[in-house]
Nucleic acid binder design. Structure first.
Lengths: 213, 213
DNA sequence: GACTGTGAAGCCATTCACAGCT
DNA sequence: AGCTGTGAATGGCTTCACAGTC
């Protein structure tokens, strides 16, 4: 499907940003765009944009640029977003709830098809139209919905146990919001989003900068 | 204060992870720890751990290792977490609400001291004990509380405007959860957390992997 | 013997610069 | 003339390997 080279993860992150930028540009009715214009719009270098795209093929026309709709379609395909992804959420606390309500996922084709929680009081209720199940029904729901992705939004202490359950249930990828290092089988894709790490990078920079003045 | 070299951002992210790991280790009563044990605990190489720490000084004892409490204290100081940080939140929607309730921030010394929203119906109410203010009171609240960090949790369309308001109000750093590329003056620290980018990296990997089989 | 701290080597990502198209 | 696609050069992070210390 693609040139089989190792693709830098940074490239994937940028592709994701390009695709959103192209959505805006397309909405304005622009037909053709150059690597320089994309670069300016998203804050990277033009060469970077071309290199990123070149990993996956030749989408542009020399002397002209890229067709906006075409390029956008190609990038969505590369990111696997040409069809929608059912995902399951574990944790119906504040974070889990917010993530279920969050419109940004749906916009990009992610559909939460089930929420799991260990609290018996929450079972059976719905959140944004999505049913809350007990943890032991995970296998069943994954099988029925075909969900390949699980999101962990539980406190740090329960995260590893939840990860194990997700793997047993058959998901292929996990997005972990708990501030814990998780271990999962090698074939499972794991990504960690640590919300406070991001704040800590800011405080480091604030402190470090000041100390250099 | 520190050796003035350019510190890789990846190093800061790892320091943040080490510090959380050390909290756990310390709680178990462990006094001394080696770079290898830290490495194993957080999933990096021992050399990486030592290099990361070496940017900031010599914290260990050859032949012995690091004193857990000492090292933890040092890292917290490096990250600027030796005292607490007042932060303000813009956006009292689902995401803003969840972030305000989220315990992970408080645990690491971040204290939300004010929430801002453009919806007049929300003004004056409290969320987790924190007052919701109209946008035009931002300058005042920032001055009174000394908040140096603002968090943007509004829809993409309003994000740039909010960023401008935060800068005018005098914050020094911004954590942006809106999926938009923002432009701010160079002296303002800006970090973006795009929640769906993380899911998109997973879907890319799922697709790409499959195509290589 | 064990483990840190660090220069050197290796590796990977980004930038440069230009050939190749339109 | 303008812009893409890409090999070569650069720069930066990670790993290696070992001297230094306890």
């Amino acid at each position: 499907m693609f040139k089989t080279l190792k693709i830098p993860e940074a490239t994937i992150i940028r592709l994701s940003v390009y695709s959103r930028f192209l959505t805006q540009v397309d909405r304005r009715g622009v037909v053709t765009i150059s690597s320089g214009e994309i670069a300016e719009g998203v804050g990277v270098s033009p060469a970077q944009v071309r290199k990123d795209l070149a990993y996956f093929g030749e989408f542009g026309t020399r002397g002209v640029g890229y067709n906006v709709k075409d390029l956008h379609r190609h990038i969505m395909k590369i990111l696997g977003l040409n069809n929608s992804w059912p995902v399951i959420m574990v944790g119906a606390g504040n974070l889990g709830t917010a993530l279920c309500m969050y419109g940004g996922f749906r916009e990009r084709g992610f559909r939460v098809v089930g929420i799991f929680d260990s609290d018996p009081h929450k079972i059976g209720y719905k959140l944004n139209g999505i049913e809350i199940y007990p943890l032991n029904e995970m296998v069943e729901v994954v099988n029925q919905t075909g969900a390949a992705i699980g999101i962990i939004a539980v406190p740090a202490d329960g995260a590893q146990e939840v990860a194990n359950l997700l793997v047993e249930a058959g998901v292929k990828a996990i997005l972990n919001f708990a501030p814990r290092v998780l271990s999962v089988p090698e074939e499972i894709e794991l990504r960690n989003v640590d919300l406070s790490v991001n704040l800590e990078i800011l405080t480091f920079n604030l402190g470090f900068r000041r100390s250099r003045d």
